[in-house]
């Protein structure tokens, strides 16, 4: 630490000439702060402010200070005469899809990352290129791929029919179970639209993120610890359970919460794969702001609810991490 201080001191005491040649500190800092505040903070503030505004029939909307948008969100527009929980239902599906998809992604990404970090540095590099390329791939392409794979005309349903799996399912009675789950029409299995397809695509979407987020913790794990446990006679599963898992518990929880918050806002996968009655808040935010219903203040209010839900989760995660950090 102290090694840094002399140059810092020196830079503040040197002549005005050299200082000016890097940057004029005060003015430059002020500009930088103004820039960041305008571009990173103002958009969020606007969403919150406009969520209290009101729609004007036939025109756009106006600033205001009304809680009507939030009332509509929680109990419906015509409360107290009648109550609907339509938007709470949307929020429920947002949370439901995000939780399951995040848990699935972490459960499958963890062993993968563990095996990857045991490889050579060059092999890790190759896997990272592969993961980053798929991670950066746009949601629209991923949805396109799964759409072809899961569509009724080609892809998995066709494969199942041609190979006789569909007939086998019908004989064994599993077909009726699938129909109850909404994953089959009278003739064949179907994945569009279904919760299965929605969650699968969302989980696929964040899987490379899960690996990238778990990677630092697992690759920094001291190999001498696991080796010591192995020499003392512990089997690979015992080592995993008693040495590896406890030491990466915090990054594991952190990854889960980050993926969850990211998945709350997923839009394309849900519009394509979820049935209309089971769509999420992200979809209705879009409909209110840009789509058919055009009610920007109500859209903003829903976005604020989404933001608060995400915020609460990050906060809960922080508490969990801190408490575990004390006891560990």
């Amino acid at each position: 630490m102290s090694a840094v201080d002399p140059p810092t001191l020196a830079s503040s005491e040197t002549s005005g000439r050299s200082r000016r040649s890097i940057m004029r500190p005060d003015l430059f800092q002020a500009v930088l702060w103004a820039l960041i505040l305008t571009l990173c903070v103002v958009p969020f503030v606007l969403v919150i402010v406009i969520s209290f505004g009101q729609k004007i029939e036939g025109a756009a909307w106006a600033f205001g200070f009304t809680g009507a948008n939030y009332q509509r969100f929680f109990v419906g527009a015509s409360w107290p005469e009648s109550t609907t929980f339509l938007y709470l239902n949307r929020l429920w599906y947002s949370v439901y899809y995000a939780v399951i998809a995040a848990v699935l992604a972490v459960l499958t990404a963890f062993p993968f990352t563990w095996f990857m970090t045991r490889m050579s540095r060059a092999a890790q590099s190759r896997w990272l290129v592969f993961l980053l390329a798929t991670l950066s791939l746009s949601e629209v392409f991923i949805v396109m791929g799964w759409d072809i794979l899961l569509s009724n005309r080609s892809g998995l349903p066709m494969v199942l029919r041609e190979t006789g799996v569909t007939d086998w399912l019908k004989v064994t009675g599993w077909f009726d179970v699938l129909r109850e789950w909404g994953m089959a029409n009278p003739r064949n299995v179907k994945f569009k639209t279904s919760e299965f397809a929605t969650i699968l695509t969302m989980s696929y979407l964040v899987w490379p993120y899960a690996v990238i987020l778990l990677y630092p913790a697992l690759s920094r794990l001291d190999p001498s610890m696991t080796e010591a446990a192995r020499t003392m006679g512990a089997g690979p599963w015992t080592v995993m359970r008693t040495v590896v898992l406890p030491s990466v518990r915090l990054p594991l929880i952190g990854t889960l919460f980050l993926l969850f918050v990211f998945l709350l806002g997923v839009y394309v996968s849900v519009t394509v794969f979820a049935e209309p009655a089971k769509q999420t808040l992200a979809v209705s935010v879009y409909e209110a702001v840009r789509g058919s219903t055009l009610n920007a203040p109500f859209g903003a209010a829903q976005a604020v609810i989404l933001l608060i839900t995400g915020g609460i989760c990050l906060w809960l995660g922080q508490i969990l991490v801190n408490r575990k950090g004390v006891t560990a």
Binding site: C40, V41, V42, P43, F44, V45, L46, V47, I50, L258, V261, F262, L264, G265, Y267, A282, V285, Y286, V289, R290, A296, G299, A300, A303, V304, L306, L307, G310
Partner: peptide, 18 residues
């Protein structure tokens, strides 16, 4: 770093207003 960490749809709506 905040815009990257929060759901992008919220940031998109806010930028649209701005």
């Amino acid at each position: 770093a905040m815009p990257f960490a929060l759901p992008p749809i919220v940031f998109g709506v806010g930028l649209g207003f701005m």
